[in-house]
Write a protein that binds this DNA or RNA. Structure first.
Lengths: 228, 228
DNA sequence: TCTGCCCTAATTGTCGACAGTCGTCAGACG
DNA sequence: CGTCTGACGACTGTCGACAATTAGGGCAGA
C-alpha cells in the first residue's frame, strides 16, 4: 500500500476523463490561462488532449454547473465574464450564506472543531505580521470554508463554493487587500470569538458585516484603480 | 409579422433537443412520474424518444446542474432523494436567500413593481378564503419569485430556483399547508407592507421568520404523519 | 451451508463521423 | 457607396458503434 498514486486513483474513480478534464479546465480558467470571454474550442482541445470531443463537452457542462462558463447554443462555451456589478451581487449572496453558516456553526461547534478553526486564524495572524497577502488570502479562504463545514449543511457548502469560484473569476479581487489586513484580521477574530461563545446571533451579524465590508473595500479599490 | 409562433421559434433556438428533453425530464420528475431514487436509463429513454443518447446525457447533466439528479460515475443518473434533514437544510438556505431578496427589494422597488407584487398577494387572499391549497401554493411561489425578480440579483434568482426545485422533490411539502393558510397569508401581508414602506431591515427579518416558520410547520406535519 | 470468485448481461463512457448552424466576406444590386 | 444575398469555413449538435465498468447470479471450494 506504499507507493500508491492516490491522486491518479481518485482521478480515475471520481470521473474518468470528463472529470479530470473538468478539473484541468477549472484550474486553467482560475489561473487565467483561459481569459474570461474566451471560447473553449472543443475540437481544438480534443486534438490537443488526444481524446474525443464527448468528454470535453461533458467537462464544459460540469463547468457550467459551477457557473464558471456560459454555454450559448450553437455558439459554444465561453468563460464567464464578471463585471463589478455582478461581483457586488455575488458578495451580497456570500454575506447571506456566510451569515447563515456562522449562525449554525456557533450553535453546533465542538471543542475539537474550535481548535481546527483556530488554525486558519493563526495563519492569518502570521500573514498579517509579515504582510503576506497571498498567505492571508489562503487563510481567509480556509477560515470561511472551515465554518461552512462545521455548519454541516451540504447544499450550503456546494452553493457557497459556486459563488466563490464565480467571484474569483473577477481578476482584481486582490486589489482590496493592501492596508486592510489588520482590520480584516480583527473581524475574523471577533467572528471566532462569537462562534467560540456559541453566540449565534452575534456570529451571523459579524459575518454579514465582514463580507459587506470586504465588498465595499473591493469596490472602492476598483474605482480607485479606474480613476488612475 | 403576425401569426408567428415565437414560442416555437424560441424553443428551437434556446435548446435543440437536449434542452427540450431537459425540460421534459424536469417536468416528469417534479410530477413524480420518475420517483426519487430511480435511475434514468439513457438507452431506454433514447429509444423511447427516438433520439440518440447524446442529447439525453446532456439533459441529465443540465438536471444535475439544477440539483434535481445525482450522477454517479459508471452507475448512471439518479433522481435526487430528499430526506427531512436535507429539506430542513434547504429551508435554512431559503430563509437566508429570501431575507436578502426582501431586503434588496424593499430598497429598490418601484410603484409599478409594487402593483405587480400585489397580484400574487391577492391570489393568496382569494385562495385563503376558498381554502384552495393548490392555488395558494402557486400564489406563494409567484410572490417569492416576484420579490426575487425585483431584488434584481441574477445569480440569487438562479440559486434560489435551484434550492426550491430541490426542495420540491420532497414529496410531502404540501403537508404543512392545511390550517396554516391564514397565518401564512398574514405573514405575506406584513412582508408586502414592509417592502412597500421600503423598510429593508424589517422586510429581511419578516422574510427570514416566514421561511423558518414554514420549515417548522412542515417538520411538525411530517413527524405527525409519521406517528400515525 | 457459507464464502469467494468468475462470468455474463446490462448500462455507462468514449469514440469518430456526419448534419446543422452561425459568422464572415466577397460579390451583386440599387 | 451602402445594403443585401449567398456561398464558404469553422464550429457545435447529434448520431450509431465500440470499449470499459458495474451489478448480479451461478459455481466451485472450504
Amino acid at each position: 500500500m506504499s507507493g500508491f498514486d492516490m491522486n491518479a486513483v481518485r482521478a480515475v474513480q471520481s470521473r474518468s476523463l470528463a472529470g479530470v478534464i473538468c478539473e484541468q479546465l477549472e484550474e486553467m480558467i482560475l489561473a487565467g490561462k483561459i481569459q474570461p470571454g474566451e471560447r473553449i474550442n472543443e475540437s481544438q482541445l480534443s486534438s490537443l488532449l488526444g481524446v474525443s470531443r464527448a468528454p470535453i463537452r461533458e467537462a464544459c457542462r460540469q463547468l457550467e454547473r459551477h457557473g464558471m462558463v456560459e454555454v450559448r447554443v450553437n455558439r459554444g462555451t465561453f468563460v464567464k465574464e464578471i463585471d463589478l456589478q455582478e461581483l457586488e451581487e455575488l458578495y451580497e449572496i456570500r454575506s447571506a450564506l456566510d451569515a447563515l453558516a456562522g449562525e449554525r456553526a456557533a450553535q453546533v461547534i465542538t471543542d475539537q472543531e474550535l481548535e481546527e478553526l483556530q488554525v486558519p486564524l493563526e495563519v492569518m495572524e502570521a500573514a498579517t505580521r509579515s504582510e503576506d497577502h497571498k498567505l492571508y488570502y489562503q487563510g481567509n479562504l480556509d477560515f470561511h470554508m472551515c465554518i461552512m463545514r462545521i455548519a454541516g449543511n451540504k447544499n450550503l457548502i456546494s452553493i457557497y463554493e459556486g459563488v466563490c469560484k464565480k467571484a474569483s473569476l473577477f481578476r482584481r479581487t486582490s486589489l482590496s487587500l493592501p492596508g486592510r489586513l489588520p482590520e480584516s484580521l480583527r473581524q475574523h477574530q471577533t467572528i471566532y470569538t462569537a462562534i467560540a461563545e456559541h453566540d449565534a446571533r452575534q456570529a451571523a451579524t459579524l459575518m454579514r458585516h465582514h463580507i459587506v465590508d470586504a465588498k465595499i473595500a473591493l469596490v472602492a479599490a476598483c474605482q480607485k484603480s479606474e480613476d488612475q
